[in-house]
Design a protein around this nucleic acid. Structure first.
Length: 648
RNA sequence: GCCGCUGUAGCUCAGCUGGUAGAGCACAUCAUUCGUAAUGAUGGGGUCGGGGGUUCGAGUCCCUUCAGCGGCACCA
């Protein structure tokens, strides 16, 4: 048999007979390594230990100590162990797929009866039992006909469908964990006993469509999380608990920011506190937009269907629109209008008034546009996904040549704003041409290149979302993450070749002829509602002073200080600070606690001493120390701190 | 929209196998003037999400509907 040479991570080289397994290689180094080994990397790719090696390669033996490889493997094996447990308990359940995801895995099952939360405990117990069996894992490569016949015989139609969708040249790997079998890419652990039996937890059951297709059957998905040991699992569960405390829905109530109610699902009742945040943010954005070369406009809420027909929304977006029928007295039939779900068609109407010259381009038209969309009921989520919202929207009318420069300019605009608001980290997703699209490929080529170049020129990285662009053009999405780790698209920039055409926007070029502008739809925050939700969660409610609804509360310690409290509040308010008095007949402990829970950034306590000295005792949110200082000095300090970042 | 779960006082929640609602906090009144995360006493407050049904009797069982939550799908 021929020899192969394997290079180890430390650079050393060893000769082995071809066909040797990674497990045997590990054994040749140290029996303890062979025991601890979980998988191998060959030239960077991940393999089972039992995989025969037939060519020279760089090899690394993974053990549970190797974080990434180990967690990936552990979670993958847990998915199998869970599926096995489910089938051992309910033999008639059909298995489908079960991939590794962030922090864990899920597995989708087809079963008539719903899994109950109690079932999860039963499954967990069975999983522990399976782990304790320490069943060896073995794998075989099968011909697809044999595999199809096998799964048909076992009444596993989903597996048959999977095999039929795997490209013909890919080998099919069949895995056995003891006597339980699954089709899988692998790799897997040596035996189930390598799994940390106290390092996992089944989290929730949810419905999920087979192959993500809403026209296909709904399966039951069980989610689990897994870590290397009990300690890491507990840390993760604790983190989830902490994250739940930052939920904007909870903080919104506690801080008295807003509420929502049944009569207006997906719409927000902003309370004075919440509305203060909103207006501060809007004022800030208005200043930024003015500086950024935008003109601001405002357009109607209720618009006749005729315009929506011309823009294409009536055909493509009608089911998401609130339709308003008006029975006008002298009209033969009802007038049909819709609340605007987007601002773009209205902006084109403004653009279209009067002739535009190439000298007017790029024309950046902004609106804090109130939109209403009839979002599917299941999509609603606090103030992050609502039916009534306001975008910090703008449309840039420009030439095709200007796309790249305008895109770069926008990314820089957005990045500055995000930085001001405390978001140094965001991700960019680049969605390119979908299958179904309007326009010529050559134009798409140029537009996609322009977006990619502009992103790079702005010094940003992006991840590709292949085929996810709008039918009218490619787009960039700027994504922020909420407290629980869910991603939300906030900013966006979308190239549009279609709407200028359908609404007949033109400009007069240098050649004296009429030309089509390109439109860039862009939003920085996205919607104020969603962005404020993210803002609340990322700060855990402790907003920077300039955004905090109530900035200062002045609390009396004794009632003799009441007059001084009012004087102090008046002085703070005169300096432009949002301050209020608390002279209730309560102990200072009580007041401090209450205002701290309400997330008021600065608490001033005043008693006899402060009255006599003209000082205040200052306590900052999140800090249990206090500091006494002259009122005038504090006001100067707070005034600077409360200035919005762009005005400092 | 789909699957599952939930819906009792402003908030957080209890209410066993059906017998006609309960706690803490909050609120109000009174007492207390107390130095940095809950002072005490007293009191008011709920057609148990809405509608229908079973029953002598329903917060508890059934149907239906609305909303919320967790996913999935959607997200021009």
């Amino acid at each position: 048999m021929s020899q192969i040479s394997l290079t180890f991570p430390d650079g050393s080289l060893r000769e082995y007979p071809s066909g040797i397994t990674a497990s045997e290689v590990a054994q040749s180094i140290a029996p303890s390594l062979a025991k601890a080994a979980i998988s191998a990397q060959l030239d960077g790719a991940h393999y089972d230990l039992a995989w025969p090696i037939t060519a020279d390669a760089k090899i690394a033996i993974n053990t549970l100590k190797d974080d990434d490889a180990a967690l990936e493997l552990i979670r993958h094996d847990f998915a199998h162990v869970m599926a096995r447990a489910v089938q051992e308990i309910w033999p008639d359940v059909k298995v489908t797929i079960g991939p590794v995801i962030k922090d864990g895995w899920y597995y989708d099952f087809d079963r008539e009866e719903p899994f109950t939360p109690e079932d999860l405990g039963v499954i967990e117990a069975k999983m522990k039992e399976i782990i304790n069996r320490r069943d060896p894992v073995r794998t075989e490569i099968w011909e697809r006909e044999r595999a199809v016949a096998f799964y048909e015989g076992n009444n596993e139609p989903y597996k048959v469908e999977l095999i039929n969708s795997i490209p013909g040249d890919e080998p099919l790997r069949m895995y056995w964990h003891g006597d339980w079998q699954d089709l899988c890419r692998g790799p897997h652990l040596q035996h189930t006993g390598q799994l940390p039996a106290d390092g996992f937890k089944l989290m929730k059951v949810a419905g999920a469509y087979w192959r993500g297709d809403s026209s296909r059957p709904m399966l039951q998905r069980i989610y689990g999380v897994a870590f290397k040991d009990r300690k890491a699992l507990k840390a993760h569960l604790l983190m989830l608990e902490e994250a739940a405390k930052r939920d904007h829905r909870k903080l919104g109530r506690e801080m008295d920011l807003f509420h929502m109610q049944e009569e207006a699902p997906g719409q927000i009742f902003w309370h004075p506190n919440g509305w203060t945040i909103y207006t501060q943010l809007q004022d800030y954005m208005r200043r930024q937009q003015t500086k950024g070369g935008y003109v601001e406009v405002n357009t109607p809420q209720v618009v006749n269907r005729v315009l929506w027909e011309r823009s294409g929304h009536w055909e493509n977006y009608q089911e998401h629109m609130f339709i308003v029928e008006v029975d006008e007295e002298h009209a033969r039939e009802k007038t049909v209008n819709a609340l605007k779900p987007m601002n773009c068609p209205c902006h084109v109407q403004i653009y279209n008034v009067g002739l535009k010259s190439y000298r007017d381009l790029p024309l950046r038209m902004a609106e804090f546009g109130s939109c209403n969309r009839y979002e599917p009921s299941g999509a609603l989520h606090g103030i992050m996904r609502v039916r009534g919202f306001t975008q910090d929207d703008a449309h840039i009318f420009c030439t095709e040549d200007q796309i790249e420069a305008e895109t770069e300019r926008f990314i820089e605009f957005l990045r500055n704003i995000y930085a001001d608001l405390g978001f140094e980290n965001f991700t960019i997703k680049f969605s390119d041409r979908p299958e179904q699209r309007a326009g010529e490929d050559a134009v798409w080529d140029r537009a996609e290149t322009a977006l990619a170049n502009a992103t790079k020129a702005a010094g940003c990285e992006y991840t590709l979302n292949p085929g996810e662009g709008a039918f009218y053009g490619p787009k960039l999405e700027f994504v922020l993450t909420d407290a629980i780790g869910r991603d939300w698209q906030c900013g966006t920039l979308q190239v549009d070749f279609v709407l200028p055409e359908s609404l007949d926007a033109t400009y007069i070029g240098a050649d004296g002829g009429k030309h089509r502008p390109v439109m860039l739809h862009r939003a920085t925050l996205g919607s104020f509602e969603r962005f404020i939700g993210i803002l609340i969660e990322s700060h855990a409610g402790k907003l920077p002073l300039w955004l905090a609804p109530q900035q200062v509360v002045v609390a009396s310690i004794v009632s003799d200080a009441d007059d001084y409290v009012y004087e102090t509040v008046a002085a703070l308010q005169a300096a432009g600070l949002r301050a209020k008095a608390d002279i209730r007949n309560e102990k200072i402990n009580y007041k401090v606690r209450e205002h701290s829970l309400a997330k008021i950034p600065v608490i001033l306590a005043v008693g006899a001493r402060e009255v006599a000295d003209g000082t205040v005792s200052v306590r900052r949110l999140g800090d249990n120390r206090t500091q006494t200082q002259p009122l005038a000095e504090l006001i100067e300090e707070l005034r600077i701190e409360a200035t919005p970042p762009d005005l400092r």
